[in-house]
Design a protein around this nucleic acid. Sequence first.
DNA 1: TGGATGCTTCGACACGTATCGAAACATACG
DNA 2: CGTATGTTTCGATACGTGTCGAAGCATCCA
Lengths: 238, 238
Amino acid sequence: MNPQPNVASAASLIADPARAAILMALTDGRARPAGELAYAASVTAQTASSHLGKLLAGGLLTVETEGRHRYYRLAGPHVAQALENLASIGPLEAVRRKPLTRDAQKLQFARCCYDHLAGRVGVGVARGLQERGFIIPVADKQFEVTPAGAEWFGRMGLDVTKIKPTRRGFARQCLDWTERQHHLAGPLGVQFLSLLCAKGWLRRSKTSRAVQVTPQGLRELREQLDVDLAEIAPATSG
Amino acid sequence: MNPQPNVASAASLIADPARAAILMALTDGRARPAGELAYAASVTAQTASSHLGKLLAGGLLTVETEGRHRYYRLAGPHVAQALENLASIGPLEAVRRKPLTRDAQKLQFARCCYDHLAGRVGVGVARGLQERGFIIPVADKQFEVTPAGAEWFGRMGLDVTKIKPTRRGFARQCLDWTERQHHLAGPLGVQFLSLLCAKGWLRRSKTSRAVQVTPQGLRELREQLDVDLAEIAPATSG
DNA sequence: TGGATGCTTCGACACGTATCGAAACATACG
DNA sequence: CGTATGTTTCGATACGTGTCGAAGCATCCA
């Protein structure tokens, strides 16, 4: 009668608080060693090891050994997507009472989603790119780069003709659950985030998914893409 | 350290096999009484009642009392979406060995996703509508109906100007995990499924999410939208 | 009003599993 | 080669929770 016992088993892997913390710590797409994940989940190394083994067996994580460290990362973007999707279910009562921590505000403002830019800034940038006619949404949850867009990316220092599309596309539309709008993902999104960091407009946190917008970035984003971050910034950056 | 205990609690609600079975039984968007759900999950009425209470408290279900029956349904499309999304995580080993049951094949071929058409047929229809220029994907995971599309829907017997958009849009792009492509959801998708059933092209199963394509539907879909179901049909319908 | 049906609450039991201490294993460093 | 660090395995414990029998409400019907 039930053709999908899958959902239950997959969900049970995410259901444990420690495992959920581990997964959330990996949603930026970076790989982290077991010890760091144990610390992030506030459990001992043994406990974390047990969890990591289960997540691995369940296909949620992959691992690569390097020296005496074992680096874990999410098995793919679809796992990150499922996590964000799950987060959209329950927050009705749990989050509302507390007015969001400082860190949570930063995350909502700007963060990286697996390996590209997300949050208010991510959505704003994607919207700016569309309004300028640099990218247009097309079928299959993809963006297409217009000739004008290619030229603009080129002036920014990004040769879009040199970016190789993966099996899942070249410039994906990724749904942002905090904003309920799309931001730019896929190889182009990855390269674009790197570029903005290299130009000193953004700065990735070493310890979390948070992304900081530099004063220069504030100015340039407004100038280049008409993204007014002042309006959407959290208290500190306003 | 963990700003989202949400994912863990939401996942734990889906993690139980009985609850998962209940949720999956509701993914077609219809409302069902508690007893039927107990049967679907193969548990007693007391056990099911306990689960239903938890799902209700967790915001995954809503309920309406009618006489001595209590009808439960999914709290919204986002829950169905999260379920389908979760299903895409684990099926690597669990499903592969068995070549899919008869029922599972039917579901993969054509089913309703909450309240609109999904599966191979759903994706094929959406693709056909796009190739004919009747709908085009736009930002925010939405479809836009072209003038030609409005005319075509009109000839089919569906006045698109009379369909009210909800808060979440008018014609949504819904990701189909079996096909990894979009199909048509939202109010337009709902109305369109009703229309195809009314015209006798499709027939919804009373007991499951499966949707059957009638011989007339087979012919008309090919004629109107160039959807060749013969190629993508399961054994029986080929 | 009395009995049937549908559903929920209560209480007790049993099973699963998350957790950590101790120890084993692997790798790097001096 | 011995020691330190990172990680996993083993074993025991304790807590949570899914399960069903029995009883309690609510509704419908005669």
